[in-house]
Design a protein around this nucleic acid. Structure first.
Length: 235
DNA sequence: CCATTAAACACCC
DNA sequence: GGGTGTTTAATGG
């Protein structure tokens, strides 16, 4: 059998479906929607591939149609620092589009991932013409701000279990990852990449969080029982 | 010291 | 074959 054969993924979500059900398109007019659908371009990034890199010019607002991404950066001594994860249905990069200058972080696919690329000009045209879109972007930026405040906080308190809890809480934040369901198929290794922890440390932390009644651990995935509890978890 | 981790291995989906 | 639990040896604050 051919070694390079790749499973013809049953394409559970089409890019257009993903756009049409996205929260930010609900307030758009038919004309605005038509331009969005005409301008957005689908791309595929294989596991371990770069979606975009730190230092590159920012040309697009990017949506994750299907897959899993991590936003990260590499410290001077070569250590990877992950900021957050991006699941199917989520959009990112609005902050980079709203200011001048190159992108400040890497985005890497943890699985084979399909993406939607919206050109910078379309993004700014929506900002100029849709109040609903402005409200959406404002809310998104505010959620990111609160997430990064939380990141600084947990970085200072240095408790791996709490760090993992917040990482999961961010992943299950419906503003940052819309349409997320309480059950998520994600391996403990993938969680480790997102939380900067080893596989067995993730396993240990998940046991603690399960003990606290916040999550349920299953084979190949987790079920989140209490997102707010995860965000507040401490020790 | 203590916590963490990579590597290796054995199970279980 | 991939995900998971566990042990062991190495690492680093």
């Amino acid at each position: 059998m051919p070694v390079l054969a790749r499973k013809p993924a049953p394409a559970p979500v089409s890019m257009l479906d993903m756009i049409r059900t996205a929260p930010w398109t609900q307030a758009l007019t038919a004309e605005q929607m038509a331009r969005v659908e005409a301008d957005v371009e689908e791309r595929f990034v294989p596991k371990d591939g770069y979606v975009c890199r730190k230092g590159e010019p920012v040309g697009h607002w990017i949506g994750c149609v299907d897959g899993l991404l991590k936003m990260s950066s590499v410290s001077p001594d070569g250590k990877t620092i992950t900021f957050t994860g991006v699941l199917g249905g989520a959009w990112f990069g609005e902050g980079s589009l709203l200011k001048e200058g190159p992108r400040q972080y890497d985005v890497i696919a943890l699985r084979d991932t399909r993406l939607a690329f919206m050109p910078r000009t379309t993004f700014h045209w929506l900002l100029d013409n849709s109040i609903g879109f402005n409200r959406f972007v404002m809310t998104l930026l505010n959620e990111r701000l609160s997430m990064f405040i939380s990141l600084v906080e947990y970085d200072r308190m240095l408790d791996t279990n709490a760090r993992l809890a917040r990482c999961l809480a961010a992943l299950f934040n419906p503003h940052l990852n819309p349409g997320i369901s309480p059950q998520l198929k994600i391996s403990q290794e993938e969680i480790g990449y997102l939380a900067n922890a080893s596989r067995q440390r993730v396993n240990g932390a998940l046991r603690v969080l399960e003990e606290a009644g916040l999550v349920q651990v299953r084979y190949g995935g987790i079920t989140v029982l209490d997102v707010e509890g995860l965000r507040r978890f401490n020790g």
